[in-house]
Design a protein around this nucleic acid. Structure first.
Length: 571
DNA sequence: AGTGCCTGCGCG
DNA sequence: AAAGCGCGCAGGCACT
């Protein structure tokens, strides 16, 4: 009877895949070689509790998904390396910083395997590269040791598991795609812009507005798309704006302003999400962005291509469930202030959040006069406002919620001093650059100029605002990851759709309810119509599970705005 | 032609 | 200059 396999490390050795099975203690139990074509079957045959360890999820998982195989758990060495390398809980002696071959972004690591030239085929080019099985085993052992010796191994393990689950989900979201209605998108474009113009042409509504602006400027050839030229044209008619931004132009009274603002709005729609976007990014009923887990320093996801995280509200009706399916759209109400309350153990702020709307809770307790001011004050507290209404409201916030304010103020102070701050689960901010330290050093010297001192002061404050926000934004990202990971597991346990059929989005995601979109604090699940309520219950249960996982019994809810509908239009 | 920066604006 | 955080992308423009 052999010990149970806890981990299976995947890597390459010569031209084949090597699978090394490890016990819970990290000891090697067995190893085997596999051809690429046999990997999916091997993974599918393993028990779902198996955690697959691999260099970089986008390099291994898409092929499995294409073969119809999903994985319940993995350990993404690249993403976990990035966390452990910077975490204040991990000592320098863990060697994470020295293992620079793991530092690249997903794209850079892919490049590292490619020989520099066609003649450089000595085999050495892959020796230290992450895909190599020896490199993967060494890094995994290094990471296990780093976690074991960390200040709070439990939280760090949670973070690494959540990050890795996110890596799986990012690939799945891309494979599944967001259901997108071409007719609805086209209808919106035609209503706003007019008929689709010929290639290189300008939509009718844009042309009309442009003519109105030029007429009002008294300049039939005025260029509206070049910021410097537009600014000069405005100055000539007495609009002495310093920039051509929407907010500033709106301050001026001139017949050119109204059509100009409309012109800007429509050209933005046409260039960012017009017909060309539709053809390129959602040609066959699915929008498939590339999600980049850990792409933001705080731990938030970034995206690449198609502007996935910037879909304008105007286009949300184009997010439309397939026939016989529905969407469950949910976002967290005021995620970041709630996260702040929980992190700080601020029971007074948690108390104000008891209802559905935290901002109204502040008004009800007489902290600020209006909901709008509550929002501005809290955002200012988390972003580090120094002027205006927001800064004016901070003293009231400080009186009412000293613990929450102390947490962000302390993070800001540490940042200004050049220190490192960490999220709830242990992701740490990157240290300041050598140049930053140098500037602070020189500015504190005896022969520092006043200009240099001002610059250093400003640079310190900038970093303070970054670290102030880092702890909150980063912990909110952790809550969201925990929510996603838990929901992903719950959805996988639901019954398949009746009469599920294969189609272009792949058998796995056509067969059952699945996540289709994620944006910081919002998710969209695409589900068989009759499972709408069941999925909604899973979404809520996952949010509660995430809250307990991170914050235990702290008395605070993370209420969701949730709707079940055929499309994702915002209320 | 390719690059990198700037402005502006979409999202949380 | 949208007061204060984090992003991606398009278009113009200066540079190589």
């Amino acid at each position: 009877m052999s010990a149970a396999v806890a981990w299976s490390v995947l890597g390459r050795s010569d031209d084949v895949i090597r699978v090394v099975d490890l016990g819970a203690d990290g000891r090697e139990l067995s190893a085997r070689l596999l051809a690429d074509a046999d990997l999916a079957a091997h993974v599918a045959a393993a028990p779902p509790s198996r955690r697959w360890v691999w260099s970089d999820t986008p390099r291994w998982y898409p092929a499995l998904l294409a073969a119809g195989v999903t994985v319940a758990r993995c350990h993404d060495l690249r993403l976990c390396h990035a966390i452990l390398r910077d975490s204040a809980q991990v000592g320098e002696d863990a060697g994470m910083r020295a293992a620079v071959e793991w530092d690249g972004s997903a794209g850079e690591m892919a490049d590292a395997r490619i020989p520099a030239t066609l003649f450089d085929l000595t085999g050495a080019e892959t020796a230290g590269a992450p895909d190599d099985i020896a490199a993967a085993l060494a890094e995994f052992e290094r990471q296990r040791a780093a976690v074991a010796h960390a200040g709070d191994p439990g939280r760090l393990r949670l973070l690494l598991a959540a990050e890795s689950a996110g890596a799986l989900l990012a690939c799945e979201l891309h494979a599944a795609g967001l259901p997108w209605s071409r007719p609805v998108h086209e209808r919106i474009l035609e209503e706003e812009l007019g008929a689709r113009p010929a290639v290189g042409g300008v939509p009718d509504r844009v042309a009309e507005l442009g003519a109105r602006v030029r007429a009002a400027l008294g300049d039939p050839t005025a260029s509206l798309d070049s910021q410097p030229k537009l600014l000069r044209a405005l100055h000539r008619v007495g609009v002495l704006a310093a920039s051509t931004s929407r907010w500033e132009l709106a301050e001026y009274e001139h017949p050119a302003i109204e059509p100009l603002l409309a012109y800007k709005k429509l050209t933005r729609l046409a260039s960012a999400n017009g017909w060309a976007w539709l053809d390129e990014w959602a040609p066959h009923g699915r929008f498939r962005p590339v999600y980049v887990p850990g792409g933001v320093v705080t731990g938030r996801w970034a995206s690449s291509g198609g502007g996935a995280l910037q879909l304008p509200r105007m286009l949300r009706p184009a997010v439309r469930a397939d026939d016989g399916w529905t969407l469950v759209v949910a976002d967290v109400a005021q995620l970041e202030p709630r996260v702040l309350a929980a992190m700080a153990g601020d029971t007074a702020l948690a108390d104000a959040a008891r209802g559905v709307d935290l901002y109204s809770g502040l008004v009800a307790r007489g902290v600020v006069p209006s909901r709008q001011e509550a929002k501005i004050a809290l955002l200012g507290a988390m972003y580090g406002a120094t002027t205006g209404d927001s800064a004016r409201l901070l003293p009231a916030l400080r009186r009412a919620y000293p613990r929450a304010m102390a947490l962000v103020d302390d993070a800001a102070r540490r940042g200004e001093e050049g220190g490192v701050v960490s999220t709830w689960l242990g992701r740490s901010s990157p240290p300041p650059s050598p140049g930053w330290h140098e500037l602070q050093q020189q500015a504190s010297g005896p022969d520092a100029s006043a200009a240099m001192q001002t610059q250093a002061r400003r640079s310190a404050r900038d970093r303070g605002r970054f670290t102030r926000n880092f702890v909150v934004q980063g912990t909110a990202a952790e809550w969201a990851l925990a929510w996603l990971a838990d929901l992903r597991t719950r959805l996988a346990a639901l019954a398949p759709a009746p009469g599920a059929a294969a189609d272009a989005s792949g058998p796995v995601f056509r067969a059952r309810a699945h996540l289709a979109f994620f944006l910081h604090d919002e998710i969209i699940v695409h589900a068989p119509a009759e499972q709408g309520e069941e999925v909604a219950a899973a979404v809520r249960a996952a949010a509660e599970a995430a809250t307990r996982l991170l914050f235990g019994g702290f008395p605070l809810d993370f209420p969701l705005d949730l709707r079940i509908a055929a499309d994702a239009a915002k209320a």
